[in-house]
Amino acid sequence: MNFLAKIADWFRSIGTATRNGITRLGFATRFFWAIVRASGPTFMRPRLLIREIYHAGVLSLVIVLMSGLFIGMVLALQGYETLVRFGATEAMGVLVALSLVRELGPVVAGLLFASRAGSAMTAEIGLMKTTEQLAAMDVMAIDPVARVVAPRFWAGVISLPLLAAIFSMLGIYGGFLVGVKLIGIDGGAFWGQMQVAVDWRNDVMNGVIKSVVFAFAVSLIAVFEGYDATPTAEGVSAATTRTVVTSALAILALDFVLTVFMFRGGVN
């Protein structure tokens, strides 16, 4: 009997976790619509948006530039090791560009964005909630979702695709530096093969679409966790951690789904 009770407890805990997860997903969805409905002021007053783009985008620029450059350089070095065995080092441009544009650009830029800007958004909104700044706005008859949440959300949605593009560009340049300048592959072959192999619609546009989807996901997670945080110091720090973890999982899961739909042609 005791054993059965333990099994029942175990299933019950799964049930509770599932129900909580679904409830939170429901809240997040409703929150998303609340943001969309309250987005008027964000676009009527670009000053709010510009300030938040500065915080979300410009302040993430350095880490994205550096990571992009290094990841491109590493891709070129590792790619060379493999390609040289098949005598196909000219394909390095293709390798670097396709890896970055299709996968690494959107995904790694998304992960960096979540940990740099997303966590900051959560902490900021959570802190405003803890110190009753959001309640103060509410009492002043100013909707905190319109004034605080929506500008941050849209700034994230705008910033991440740009960061992902910058990341890919820097990565390709990093690959060029290592492949052409350091190892000595023919520069013409590097760019030429890349241009033949990379399709602007199937590869570049799909990469951009990925980054836009990630941008919506990460920004929503970040502002939701902040707004939903328990208004205490521990609550805010827990929410910040949740933002990074949930965002990372969301990016990787969405990436898989999107890849299946976008690049099915390569599988069949």
Binding site: L127, M128, T131, E132, Q133, A135, A136, D138, V139, M140, A141
Partner: peptide, 17 residues
């Protein structure tokens, strides 16, 4: 309209940081 005619001082001020 009611809130616009109302002022509230919060416990620790709640100034926008």
């Amino acid at each position: 309209a009611h809130r616009r005619k109302l002022g509230m001082l919060f416990q620790f001020g709640a100034l926008f940081t």
